[in-house]
Design a protein around this nucleic acid. Sequence first.
DNA 1: CTGCATGATTTATC
DNA 2: GATAAATCATGCAG
Length: 326
Amino acid sequence: MDRSRAGGDDDITGAPGSLDAATAPIRPAASTSLPGTGSVPSPLWKHALNCHRMKPALFSVLCEIKERTALSIRGIQEEDGPDPQIMRLDNMLLAEGVAGPERGGASAAAAVVAAAAGGSPGEGNVEHSEYKEKLAQIRRMYHAELEKYQQACNEFTDHVMNLLREQSRTRPISPKEIERMVGIIHRKFSTIQMQLKQSTCEAVMILRSRFLDARRKRRNFSKQAAEILNTYFYSHLANPYPSEEAKEDLARKCSITVSQVANWFGNKRIRYKRNVAKLQEEANRYAVKTAVDAASVSSQASQANSPATPNSGGYPAQCYTPDGRL
DNA sequence: CTGCATGATTTATC
DNA sequence: GATAAATCATGCAG
């Protein structure tokens, strides 16, 4: 009826059953006195209390009070079960390779890199390692913190349990209550853990977005690379669709990736088609260049009159789609 | 600052 | 999956 205490269920210090006494000694100043240091001879005091002739009477009074207040404890069922939010965070961290078994964070990083770079192997190595390193850093911090929390939680739980067990000799404390107390402590720590997980997720997201943004960072190819690509394009104007091997070769020569070569040809084809007239001049320039190159080669192979590259004669400037498309 | 060039991405199509 | 076409975003000369 008359509840003197209105402490919330999750409030450790205000928990029903008056556990302030249990938690109070957590504070350093009140820790059980060590021999020679404490001004209060605690063991002696406890002994005196336990042996006091009024102790059984006191104990029964406490039992009675408890009996009355126990009603407030019942009816508060522990809503246990995994928190959906924490599960979500766990899954996220697992997917990013931060949580879960050690795998160097590499697979997740690799997946992100592959998605960002277009999937070709061997590209984006610099960014890849940078991303990997950053992710590993986050991972290390996360695990260190998690372990710290876990340890702190265990220590605190042990401490509180010992205290309660100790106190149960003086006042009535059922094992159920201790269990409840442990539950409360664990919930408290799990909210702290959730904060850690949340901020870790945020860190990963920030890293990820920064990394993915970087892929849009455009750097013009070197003059030499542009030269090589243009030479190939204009000498294959009738069919400017390099084979896979040709792309690899060009990529090697230009120090770019195969997908960059594919991008370049895609852009070049469409832009050439869009502006044939203007690019015709460029086409002529590269035609001359190819012819000169070919001439210098063929001057050794006396009567070879076809240039080093096929289709370099005509510059049709249109209708080059391989499958009839335009 | 502006406009164009250009590499990358997205979307639709085959 | 490769490509065309449109679009985005940046680099860079003027």
